[in-house]
Write a protein that binds this DNA or RNA. Structure first.
Lengths: 185, 185
DNA sequence: ATCGTCATGTAACGTGTTACATGATTGT
DNA sequence: ACAATCATGTAACACGTTACATGACGAT
């Protein structure tokens, strides 16, 4: 697994596009449709997707090919290159950031989705355990913070704190469920 | 309650700034500190906050005043104007969007936080009930979507669907808890 | 014949990020 | 004396949004 190095980091949306192409070859249009109907928050306007496709191709992470140049409607289908696959794997295996841990859970779940095609069963279990550990860490930090602030908290603030806690607990239960299914632990 | 009309919509971050000022008068620096330590996802760089403060003041939604111009460190404290208060209330009372309902829960919770100072108990209960209804609606739509797609779903896709469902259920439980506390129903 | 969908793309724009600059005050 | 914190601000940049343009194909 050679580590790919580019002059700049890819944006989250670029990684997401890379991810969907990894599931199966995609055209700009199909990515837009997927993002609109799917389990995600991105609006995925053509003004974002088509330039991204062009950039990723220039970086050598994906390869585009015109499908049926004559006869039917021409559409450009993209598939991952080896470098693109390596780049995606790097992203999937990188430790989850604090943001991904609580606020950007949709991204975390997308990573989990892409992991199905890219990672081995062992790697998925390791990923889930890292997620579990990160969540525990985050939980402890949150609890420490609230322990000192809860005294002067207003009713609404307390409820928000409970919402945060319920959210973390739900994530913990989900991770356990997922681990149980994959025979981890 | 006169409805304020501006040529453009405020951005979410602008509303959030407005909200924090409504809790108590704030300086740019205090807003940045609050956002950094608090229960939210925004990084709140000075490059975002200071221009926003200037814009909101120009729109007449907040009023700035230099505190202790000499003697100690000068800082500009802002407080809501009547128009700003009306604007904020409009935002708080507007029906939650689909995005706020599931993906942008942090915004929903911030609205709930600001509601403590701005809305009456009756309004808060009504807000929670609207939230409850919106969630139920969303849940039904999601379930309908997954009912037709679950058949050919992969294990990871199924788990993501479960995560979504658990999320919705957690929100339902939280709303019930909040309603119980406010004597609604 | 026309409308909706499939399909790709561009241009203008605005918002927030990153990085920097500045300076006063407080703590060690 | 020096570092950290308080405090405000600006400039360059990049990303994604909105809106538009274009055109072929299939259905009614």
């Amino acid at each position: 697994m050679t580590k790919i190095h580019l002059e700049r980091e890819l944006t989250t949306l670029e990684f997401v596009v890379l991810g969907f192409i990894s599931v199966e070859p995609q055209s700009g249009y199909s990515i837009i449709s997927t993002l609109e109907t799917g389990v995600h928050r991105w609006s995925a306007s053509p003004g974002a997707i088509y330039p991204i496709l062009k950039r990723l191709e220039q970086l050598g992470l994906i390869e585009g090919e015109l499908e049926i140049p004559n006869e039917a409607r021409a559409r450009k289908m993209y598939q991952l290159s080896q470098q693109g696959a390596a780049m995606l794997d790097e992203w999937l295996l990188a430790p989850l950031t604090n943001r991904e841990l609580l606020e950007e859970r949709d991204i975390t779940l997308l990573k989990f989705l892409f992991a199905e095609n890219r990672l081995s069963k062992t790697q998925v279990i390791a990923w889930l355990k890292a997620y579990q550990e990160g969540t525990a860490h985050y939980k402890a930090a949150r609890e420490a913070f609230f322990d000192v602030t809860i005294a002067q908290a207003t009713p609404h603030q307390r409820l928000i704190w409970e919402a945060t806690l319920m959210d973390i607990q739900m994530q913990e239960r989900w991770i356990e469920k997922a681990l149980a299914q994959f025979g981890g632990d």
